[in-house]
Amino acid sequence: MTTGTVFAFRKMSFQDILSGLWFSVNSVKGKSALQLSRELGCQYKTAWVLLMKMREAISTRRVRMMLEGEIHIDGKYAGGHIKQKNRKEDRIDRRRAEYQNFKRLTILTLREKSLRGRGDEQTLTRVVRSEDPNEAWQMVRKHVRKGSKIHADEHFSYDDLEGLQELRRVNHSKEYQTEGGINTNHVESFFSRVQRSYIGIHHRFSVKYFDWYAAELAWREDNRRVDNGMLLWGMLYKALSRPTSRNLCGYWQGIMPPDLVWEGGENPDQ
């Protein structure tokens, strides 16, 4: 039944897999592998691989995702926290490039605002090294329909989007919203979900798999009004329609993928 899917070569019973997926969709801000291992009575490694296979399957929905209408774009830095020194004179400015530890990544996000108020918007994420004009331009070119309106803040990475779509800006150093109503609040609301998941559930995101975590949270945000039963069937459909994972099959035997950080080139999900 699971041959040729992400659950191929499984040792868990199919009933336990369904239970694991159910526990996952029932958690609003995501599910940690440690918690799932306790609920299923299995090893941490088993729960971790199950959740990561689910995240990998969900992330593939981005391949053909096309956004339109009013779209908010922004980037959120997360991960790679370094505790500052006790004495003020010993501290350094971690915002400067020369003091980066290269573990703090950016979730570059496009979020479509539903003009119908039905909560049917789409959220597209890519994890990149930093907010960069090339990644932003490529992302909008591939996933935004012509005639859309882009809302962005004052960051220079979004200057070149003017040639692709109608671009509207808000300077966050002066205001959160212009007098004309231009803002990026819709994408900021998604970032609040990411922050709550980071602090309350996972406590840290692996640099290697950060992209899959972000894609899962975007899926949860887009389906926040869908009941748990439909979420379960949707998650199961994606998992069973996805071929055997090249990234996770044999993971604990040493078969590991490279860091899933998008460089603005070919689509990593293809």
Rank of each mutant, 00 (worst) to 15 (best):
K142F: 07
P268V: 10
V170A: 11
F210R: 02
P257N: 01
L260A: 14
L161P: 12
F190D: 06
Y99R: 12
N26D: 01
V170N: 02
L232V: 05
G234P: 03
I255S: 14
H203T: 10
E89P: 12
L67Y: 04
A57L: 09
Q100H: 05
E221S: 05
I255R: 15
L236A: 09
M65L: 15
V207N: 06
W219S: 10
T106M: 15
E162W: 09
L248S: 06
V28I: 01
G30W: 04
T184V: 13
I82R: 04
H202M: 05
E154G: 12
M1N: 03
G119F: 07
P258G: 07
G234W: 08
I73F: 10
N223T: 13
G265E: 09
F23R: 07
H72D: 12
A136H: 03
H143I: 13
Q165N: 10
Q84V: 00
V170S: 06
Q165I: 08
F190Y: 13
D74S: 11
V63L: 15
K113T: 05
I92H: 01
S24M: 07
E39A: 12
N247H: 08
L115I: 10
K146D: 06
Q138P: 12
P243Q: 01
L167K: 10
R242T: 12
R141Q: 13
K174D: 03
E221I: 06
G79H: 00
N26K: 11
G69R: 03
W219E: 00
E68F: 14
Q43A: 15
R91N: 00
E154H: 08
